[in-house]
Design a protein around this nucleic acid. Structure first.
Length: 440
DNA sequence: TCTGGGGTCCTAGGACCC
DNA sequence: TCTGGGGTCCTAGGACCC
């Protein structure tokens, strides 16, 4: 008897779980310092600029994500808020442990961010009496073994699993686990009618404002809106979100992390920077970090973008921001080559007389190294030493933590020459006689 | 002076996420 | 005085080519 191949996917309902650590950075700090338990606590961003994680006590005071620390100082004094500098090595390590534990519950795991992951738990009903019990077991185990509090949401699509997780977090009656599959249509209707549309995954501040202007204020109302109308008004992404809310799974579990299509390394300066030489050093160091990430995913890039800007919050100061994309003559992941291209770009966008606040680089045009090996062959032969140096650097950095070893700009200050090829200006250095970069 | 259409590539900007 | 960093996708418009 012929079977319809689509039948299976239509009738077999998928079940996704979303597991999310509550106040992740704050919870990590607390596991290593129990005195911080029950105290109002924030974790600060780079240079101790903003609060990037808040404990429930701090959230209850109305502190928003990303609030600058200096604006919080009065409140902090009054309520004895503890502020810690961030420790990303610790958080990354704890994250790995959480993910490893969760893999014991399902082989199908998508690590979505540092503190949350999706699991496909289809067929788990054979092992567990209910999804809720599965979720409670996950919570208990992660709490016991790692000391971290998590919430779990179950739903037939990723968007619904996300929403269920939100419910599990906000509504105490659920005790940290919400399985939409166990609720009746009436219960879900009542629940969704009381959640603002802003809470849906993919609906941000701009879109929610437009939706509300059109009379769509709750999750239930968004669910009832015809997808075709949403498509014309908001585009294909919003249409997909609405379908997902109706239980049609449009977003698959991505178990294998695809290689990054762009790699950024940037940082604000603790103090203002004025000199090009200082910017060069910072840019060179960023290239070093980014190139290492590029090599770690076995990729090469064919262009590097450099950007610098002054402090936009100081409106009284003259402002300047610029960026440039420097294409490479052949795709590469060689730190020195990339530094030369980046410094060349920096030279073109740097303007003296400004107080710079931030600099960074972005690697673009990324592809798998294996695909371009042929065209790189000649360079590899020339630069075998360089490749060995890179490998050794990566090894040291892995062993002793990131940025133990970096290449600085001083090694690369070579003059540039310019010629025209097909009307396109082509810039080259004399270094090794390898053309490095050209710009249009 | 009249005057097409389709495709690709690149960039910039806007929206979203954590 | 002090204001994070790193990603994704989609769309529109211009340049260029055939």
């Amino acid at each position: 008897m012929p079977t319809n191949p689509t039948n299976k996917t239509n009738t077999e309902r998928q079940v996704f779980a979303l597991v999310d650590v509550n106040n992740f950075y704050v919870s990590c700090e607390r596991t290593f310092n129990p005195k911080l338990e029950n105290r109002p606590l924030v974790v600060l961003s780079n240079n101790d600029g903003c609060a990037v994680a808040r404990s429930n006590e701090v959230k209850a005071l109305g502190v928003k994500m990303g609030t600058p620390w200096f604006q919080l100082k009065d409140l902090a004094k009054k309520h004895h808020i503890v502020a810690l500098s961030s420790n990303y090595t610790l958080y990354g390590d704890m994250s790995d442990r959480v993910m490893t534990l969760l893999r014991e519950f399902s082989p199908h795991v998508e690590v979505y961010s540092i503190d949350e992951c999706f699991l496909s738990v289809q067929g788990m009903n054979l092992l567990w009496p209910s999804a809720t019990q599965l979720g409670q077991t996950m919570r208990k185990r992660i709490r016991q073994w790692l000391g971290l509090p998590v919430c779990v949401g179950f739903g037939p699509s990723k968007t619904l699993a996300k929403l269920a997780n939100h419910i599990a977090k906000k509504q105490l009656a659920f005790e940290g686990v919400c399985d939409l599959g166990s609720l009746s249509a009436e219960q879900i209707y009542a629940l969704f009618s009381n959640i603002a549309v802003r809470e849906v995954w993919g609906v941000g501040s701009q879109i929610s404002a437009k939706l509300e202007a059109a009379g769509i204020k709750t999750v239930q109302q968004l669910r009832d809106t015809p997808p075709a109308w949403l498509r014309t008004k908001f585009g294909v992404v919003m249409e997909r979100t609405a379908r997902e809310l109706n239980g049609v799974s449009c977003l698959a579990l991505e178990e294998i992390t695809p290689p990054r299509k762009q790699i950024i390394s940037s940082r604000s300066f603790g103090q203002m920077v004025y000199k090009r030489a200082d910017l060069e050093e910072s840019v060179a160091s960023h290239v070093s970090t980014a190139a290492e990430k590029l090599r770690a995913q076995h990729s090469v890039c064919n262009a590097i973008q450099v950007f610098i800007h002054t402090n936009p919050f100081r409106e009284q100061d003259p402002q300047y921001a610029n960026s440039i994309t420097v294409p490479l003559t052949c795709a590469s992941s060689d730190t020195r080559l990339l530094i030369r291209a980046a410094l060349f770009g920096l030279k073109r966008i740097y303007r003296p007389g400004f107080a710079y606040k931030k600099a960074g680089v972005m690697l673009t045009g990324i592809s798998a190294a294996a695909l371009v090996q042929k065209s790189l062959f000649a360079d590899h032969a020339l630069d075998e030493k360089s490749a060995r140096l890179m490998a050794a650097m990566d090894q040291l950095n892995r062993r002793y933590g990131n940025q133990t070893v970096t290449v600085f700009s001083t090694a690369t200050q070579k003059p540039w020459s310019m010629r025209r090829e097909n009307k396109t200006p082509c810039y080259t250095t004399q270094w090794n006689d390898v053309p490095v970069a050209y710009a249009r």
